[in-house]
Design a protein around this nucleic acid. Structure first.
Length: 381
RNA sequence: GGUGGGGUGACCGAGUGGCUAAUGGUAGCAGACUGUAAAUCUGCCGGGCUUACGCCCUACGAAGGUUCGAAUCCUUCCCCCACCA
């Protein structure tokens, strides 16, 4: 079961609702990343209270530990990690990019030298589907070949074409898995493809064509962005690509982003985002605010009684001062990492909620322009 | 009082004639982070001048001396620690 309804549009931007087996996701939406089955540092209740309606897990990392069979034996990922809302698992395609020095790509699949113990692991489009099926997330992602943002036409084409060939294999195996368990739970998971093609317009179009030809799909992801290319380049790719995508399925911009990226993406027709920056930067003491980002370790906050952001309704801002948060970072108390992570994910989720509200009210463009102007005023991003 | 050890930049602590404004840490300051090998990483960290290359001061307890050249060697003094009386 996966359905998407669009309630309002404003140019390419839209507000919608995605129905998945474990619940609804109101879009636009930001999905916190929980690589190992946990949004780093946070209790699932905290993630839920921050307004998250869906979070991610990672195929590569959960395969290495604890292993998908452990998760399956313990009732699937939702039960295992204490998250009853929708879940999406990334395929390990990003690790093809981020663990470049530890892997070898072949047509059959990718050989990874485990970053933990050096053991060799082989991921193929088929095995990635099996792992994700065992994990049992609402949405499984196709296994893709991500190339760096600077990739030339040749390399980008290679990654894009391989992603299309792998997509056919992913789809084939996923359908087998679904039909094998149709009576009980065949409807429990849907597969989304990923468009690649780097920064090259012709390759992006070709990827879109090739992907749509293999459909229909219940959602379509755009991968291989914010991997080193300039922001205007990413915007151009979105402007180029999204008009050729069907309007009746959600578009998921993978790995993005920062607050301004969300608004720029939504304006160009993106419905879903995920990004580690909220939690990673939070752990590193960097908090987003409506007037740019701030570094909590900075001496400027030593005696500040202000919350991180005066307009924020997160559990951190409702209770704690910048001075206290700075103190926690200086003293290396783990609470600081958690509190700023909570703030950052709430900040992005709330931004998406506000985008949705203004879309439904028909005033998105104006709101977005004002918001971005204020955010960039101090000259930071 | 005697004997031995020691006093280095905010702190700890290397260095025992030139490559030393002085290794390393810590603290401090600033920055980065985009489908998580990250509670990580990078830069600055005596003062002044310069866009910059660089230049000039001050500095290894104090003062004096040896030397072309001293944190490093010598003399005296001050202070700290240990043991002995």
């Amino acid at each position: 079961m996966s359905q998407f309804h669009v309630h309002a549009t404003h140019g390419p931007a839209r507000a919608g609702t995605l129905r998945l087996p474990h619940g609804e996701v109101k879009t636009p939406a930001f999905m916190p990343v929980g690589t190992h089955g946990a949004v780093r540092g946070l209790h699932p209740d905290e993630v839920r209270r921050a307004g998250a309606e869906i979070i991610l897990g990672n195929t590569y990392h959960l395969h290495l530990r604890p292993g998908e069979e452990v998760v399956r034996a313990l009732g699937g990922l939702h039960r295992f990690i204490g998250w009853s809302r929708p879940l999406l698992t990334d395929s390990g395609g990003f690790q093809v990019f981020s663990l470049e020095s530890l892997r070898k790509i072949e047509e059959e699949g990718v050989e990874f030298r485990s970053h933990i113990d050096g053991v060799l692991h082989h991921l193929t489009p088929e095995s990635v589907m099996e792992i994700q099926w065992a994990l049992g997330a609402d949405v499984a992602m196709a296994f893709d070949h991500v190339v760096p943002g600077q990739a030339d036409h040749g390399l980008a084409r290679e990654g894009m074409e391989r992603t299309l060939r792998w997509l056919a294999r992913c789809r084939g195996r996923h359908q087998e898995l679904r039909s094998a368990s149709e009576s009980e739970s065949g409807d429990r998971q849907t597969l989304w493809p990923i468009i690649q093609g780097g920064t090259h317009p012709d390759l992006r179009r070709a990827s879109a064509d090739g992907t749509l030809n293999q459909g229909p799909w219940t959602g379509i992801a755009i991968g291989g962005l914010s991997v080193g290319e300039e922001k205007p380049v990413m915007h151009r790719v979105l402007e180029d690509l999204i008009p050729v995508l069907p309007t009746d399925v959600p578009r998921y911009l993978m790995g993005v982003g920062f607050p301004d990226d969300l608004l720029e993406g939504i304006a160009r027709g993106v419905d879903l985002f995920d990004c580690v920056a909220a939690t990673r930067n939070g752990r590193h003491g960097s908090a987003w605010t409506s007037v740019g980002k701030l570094n909590l370790r900075a001496a400027a906050h030593r005696t500040s009684d202000e919350p991180l952001d005066p307009g924020c309704d997160c559990e951190t801002c409702r209770q704690f001062s910048r001075a206290y948060l700075r103190h926690l970072f200086v003293a290396e108390e783990m609470l600081g990492l958690r509190l700023v992570s909570i703030h950052n994910i709430r900040f992005l989720i709330r931004l998406a909620e506000q985008a949705r509200a203004t879309l439904l009210e028909g005033r998105f463009d104006r709101w977005r322009a004002d918001w971005l102007r204020r955010y960039h005023e101090r000259g930071e991003s």
